[in-house]
């Protein structure tokens, strides 16, 4: 909690002046499933205009936290504000500000890619012309033009991620919450997605990504938070958190559990 929300790292000169409201402010968040505590008194502030990485080991509570932040899961306690709007009081307004790519949630996969993006656009109450224009742009941008006419159920895992990203972007949200967006995406598409996200952040948007890839987060994100066992272990600008070391080493140091062994002898073939 060494975090200072008023001084986000300025990426480009044309970033608007640091606003007072955070893109996402989480305070005292708690969630338990039965007697298993998934999120334990978590505080997190994501400054507007930041590219925020959320890292943590499996089962640390990343997905649970992001689900609660996007109105998909009701917290036991705590407050969540998106750009000053309380997610669980003014749900509809908060949701209109956020674009979500959830991990482990199905899509309406009997629709074609084009239909799916259109569906999401229309659900947000946009008019048909705008939806059609943006759908075409997004399919072009994500290199899904040919796939746009195929059913999503027949997509590869990486293409499914991309179409889900397009669905999350279609209503031009101010905050983008992406749970594992790069999982099973090929390197070229991943680089394209990174460019799109970087451009989105330059344009004043805020991105939160959860990922297992420390390398990726270190290169891509200007802010990072490390979560373990439902608690915040470290947060701040990427440089602050990694403190001279690499993010991966720092992560292992914070989370613990690394074993120093060469594995059983029979695994050595020479």
């Amino acid at each position: 909690m060494t975090e200072d929300p008023s001084t986000p790292v300025v990426l480009t000169p044309d970033t608007p002046a640091p606003p007072i409201v955070a893109a996402l402010r989480i305070a005292g968040l708690k969630k338990a499933f039965g007697d298993k505590v998934a999120v334990d008194d978590l505080d997190l502030t994501v400054p507007t205009g930041s590219f925020y990485g959320l890292v943590g080991p499996n089962g640390a509570g990343k997905t649970t936290t992001l689900s609660m932040a996007t109105g998909l899961l009701r917290p036991d306690a705590g407050t969540i504000e998106v750009l000053g709007t309380d997610v669980w009081r003014d749900t509809v307004k908060a949701k209109s500000l956020v674009g979500v790519l959830s991990d482990g949630v199905a899509l309406f996969d009997r629709l074609t890619g084009e239909q799916l993006v259109t569906y999401h656009g229309l659900l947000y109450g946009m008019d048909r012309e705008t939806v059609a224009q943006r759908t075409a742009d997004l399919l072009e941008l994500l290199d899904l033009n040919d796939a746009g006419r195929k059913l999503v159920v027949d997509y590869s895992a990486g293409m499914t991620k991309k179409i889900a990203l397009a669905s999350a972007l279609v209503h031009a949200p101010r905050l983008l919450v992406l749970d594992e967006p790069f999982e099973s995406v090929d390197p070229v598409s991943a680089a394209n997605i990174r460019d799109i996200l970087a451009g989105y952040v330059r344009g004043g948007g805020t991105v939160i990504v959860s990922s297992h890839s420390m390398d990726l987060v270190q290169r891509m994100c200007d802010h990072v938070a490390v979560i373990g066992s439902g608690r915040l272990l470290a947060a701040g600008t990427t440089d602050e958190v990694r403190a001279g070391s690499t993010l991966e080493d720092r992560f292992v140091e914070l989370v613990g559990g690394r074993q120093h062994s060469e594995g059983p002898s029979w695994l050595r073939t020479s």
Partner: peptide, 13 residues
């Protein structure tokens, strides 16, 4: 719908 219902939920329809 299954979990795809999440898209209705997150769009605030």
């Amino acid at each position: 719908d299954g979990t795809a219902f999440a898209s209705h939920l997150s769009s605030g329809v």
